[in-house]
Design a protein around this nucleic acid. Structure first.
Lengths: 104, 104
DNA sequence: TAGATATATAACTAATAAGTTAAAAGGTGA
DNA sequence: TCACCTTTTAACTTATTAGTTATATATCTA
C-alpha cells in the first residue's frame, strides 16, 4: 500500500482522528491517550500503530512509558497534494498555467 | 454518521479518490466513469452513491444517462477544517491569537 | 529477584466493506 | 408495444476492520 493510501485509510477512523487531535497539542504516552477513550487499552494501542504505519505519528520509548507525537509534515503534505489534484479551484489555476506556457 | 465522518470514510477508498479526480475535470456520466475502471459497472455505481451520500458529488439525470459532478465545497471545507484542528502550525497560530486576546 | 506498572501482541468474534452476477427500473425510439 | 441501452438494486461471497479478553514483554523499584 502506497503512503497516501495508508494516510487516507488511517484518517477514516473517527477514533484515530481524535487521537491526532490530542497529539497535535503535544506528545503523550500511550496510556494517557487511552485514558481519554472509552475503549480498551489494546484497542488504542492498535490505532496508534496504524497511525504510526501511516507515518502520521512518531513513537519513542521513555523508561516504562512509550511516548507518541504528531508528524505533521506527512499529514499536511498528503492532504495538500490531494486538494491540488482534486479541488477545482486549484485545477483551474493549473489549467491557466498550462495555457500560459503554451503561448510561448 | 455525521458529515465529516462520511467524508473521511468516502476518501478512504483509492477507487473513490480516483473517481473524484476524474470528476474534478468536469461532469461525467456513470457509464463513462465506470469505463475508466477495471471493475464492474455496479461496483462503480455503489462508489458513486457513497460519494453522493458524503455530499462530495452531485447527480442529475439526463435522459437515459445519469451525470455526476464534483461538489468541491464540502471536500475543501472538511479538509481545511480538519487541518486547522490538527495541524500544529495552525494550532500554534490559534494559540497565539488566544494569548493576544488574553492580554486585553 | 520479585512485584508492580506500562505497553504490545495473540487469538478470537462480530460487524462492515468491496466486489461479483442477475434482475429490475428508467428512458429512447422504431 | 417492443427491443435496446443505461443505471441502480438485490442477493450473495469473501476479506478486512474494530473491538474484546488473556497473555507476553519491557521497565522500574523495593
Amino acid at each position: 500500500m502506497s503512503s497516501p493510501d495508508k494516510v487516507f485509510e488511517a484518517l477514516a477512523s473517527t477514533t484515530r482522528r481524535r487521537i491526532l487531535a490530542y497529539l497535535s497539542e503535544g506528545p503523550l504516552s500511550a496510556g494517557v491517550v487511552a485514558a481519554r477513550f472509552e475503549m480498551s487499552q489494546p484497542a488504542i494501542s492498535k490505532h496508534l500503530s496504524i497511525l504510526e504505519a501511516a507515518d502520521l505519528i512518531w513513537k519513542k520509548r521513555e523508561g516504562q512509558f512509550v511516548k507518541y507525537g504528531m508528524k505533521a509534515d506527512n499529514l499536511g503534505g498528503t492532504l495538500a497534494k490531494f486538494m491540488q489534484d482534486v479541488c477545482p479551484p486549484s485545477r483551474a489555476l493549473k489549467a491557466e498555467r498550462r495555457a500560459e506556457n503554451e503561448q510561448d
